[in-house]
Design a protein around this nucleic acid. Structure first.
Lengths: 155, 155
DNA sequence: TCCAACTCCTTAGCAATGCGAACTATTTCC
DNA sequence: GGAAATAGTTCGCATTGCTAAGGAGTTGGA
């Protein structure tokens, strides 16, 4: 794979340090994600909320686009969207020019729901962050960019 | 960035910065966790591997202790342990002094499996980390402690 | 002593969630 | 016009979690 893509390809010490960083980062990220997931909503499932959030971010999508974005097969997304529609959080409209596809859009209630949910979860994490020391918080603030870059690398 | 992120909770600017940090950190952490989870083993499920890893970390546990550690109800853990036992990755032994409880221990094969799995996942993340710039990597290295502190706060 | 209550674990049945296979409706291409 | 492709759906299966109920073992009080 892409090992040796670092700036200094020769230092064995750097490889070891990289391995330890990877191990600790992986463990911490997985644990924190777990905590955040446990702090989930009760009335809407994780997959439902995730799909709803994708729609809120990317605007209206066809069911196929949405299932690709959520890395889920179309039959699964059919069910998720059906439940969201039942809750009044999204609406569907058949495309007039190609009546096979149906565009899914977040409803007003759905948008409010997403905003509220996001705010609640952010507040939870923010409360934990505020319990940290200023140096820890600064380190995390400095690392957010790096995390985003890590995710930007597509493959 | 970390200007005045001190103890006083009244500064509105600090609150806003904290809220934005929380939002970005939460999104990044959840996304990275998702990527790492997708890069999972095929032959052992996530819950099985998680239980196995707990056992490898904490040593032999009773089924009740293990289910508490994994935040799962006892019936669920019964099934997980049964499958792991079927794969030869753990072994069970009834406590002679109290024959209701059964201690679950990682077998040699289970320990090898955990080591291999951990190594593989760490390698995946390490490869991504090595594709980052040195500054990003340094920022992440500096933030790992903070992440761990974030998780130390129990409630 | 002995039996009622408790503890630890298991079994049984239910619900949610994801998948693949097969189907319908629609469009596109020859 | 009809074959092939595409978008979504329905169906049945597997997995995974839960609650309720039961079984085996231990403990405590009359």
């Amino acid at each position: 794979m892409g090992r040796m893509t670092s700036v200094e390809p020769d230092a064995t010490g750097a490889d070891e340090a990289g391995a330890e960083l990877a191990a600790r980062l992986r463990l911490s990220v997985m644990r924190l994600a777990r905590r955040l997931r446990q702090q989930a909503d009760t009335d809407v499932s994780a997959s439902q909320l995730s799909a709803l959030a994708s729609l809120a971010n990317c605007g209206p999508l066809t069911l196929g686009e949405l299932s690709a974005a959520e890395r889920v097969k179309p039959p699964t997304m059919t069910r998720i969207v059906a439940s969201l529609e039942g809750l009044g959080l999204v609406s569907r409209a058949v495309n007039p020019t190609d009546r096979r596809v149906s565009r899914v859009a977040v409803s007003d209630a759905g948008q409010r729901f997403v905003d509220r949910s996001r705010h609640r979860k952010d507040a939870y994490l923010a409360a934990r962050l505020s319990a940290l020391g200023a140096d820890d918080r600064a380190a995390l603030a400095a690392a957010v960019d790096a995390l985003e870059h890590l995710l930007d690398v597509p493959e």
